[in-house]
Amino acid sequence: MERQLTEIRWHGRGGQGAKTAALLLADVAFAIGKHVQGFPEYGPERMGAPITAYDRISNSEIRVHSNIYEPDFVVVVDDTLLHTVDVTKGLKKDGAILINTEKSKEEILPLLKGYEGEVYTINAKDVSMRTLGKYFPNTPLLAAVVKVSGLMSEETFLREMEKSLRHKFRKKLDVLDGNMKALKLALKEVA
């Protein structure tokens, strides 16, 4: 489904990089010519506290400056939040939720309060450990959300990411390699 405006809400905990992931998504959408908005919602600033971040990605200028209450997609960076935060609140039925978890989808589904839209999971830890040797959940999650939301084709996404990572890691090309592997594996693993 081609949306004029795609709205995404991220749930994470302080220090896990949900805000960074939201900004990375805005970056790659900007790179393909979209109008973007990526912003965090700050509560008490401390490690581990639940935080929310948002993305608006549009074909036209974005003027609204409020939070997102009826997102098309929700990304949950930490599955322990499923017990404490109403992550599917306002989530559109024709949208989807993406959860980073080591658990199976069957174990996750009962925690989603009967959400009727599509549910995707990814084990970003496993992807990250296998490709980068360290736990950086953002890279696999970014690939997963691009695939789930259909914001751009996988080819376009990988091409743009390689361009930007090549610039960012121009002195550490082995890191570039690991990140590209993480993105590709995540595109396969998300289901």
């Binding site: 900004l23 805005a26 970056d27 900007f30 109008h35 973007v36 908005q37 990526g38 912003f39 965090p40 700050y42 200028e61 974005i62 400056h65």
Partner: peptide, 12 residues
């Protein structure tokens, strides 16, 4: 400028 809403929001 509006704190956080503008200062920390990334836009075109």
């Amino acid at each position: 400028q509006d704190g956080f809403i503008v200062s920390h929001g990334v836009e075109n």
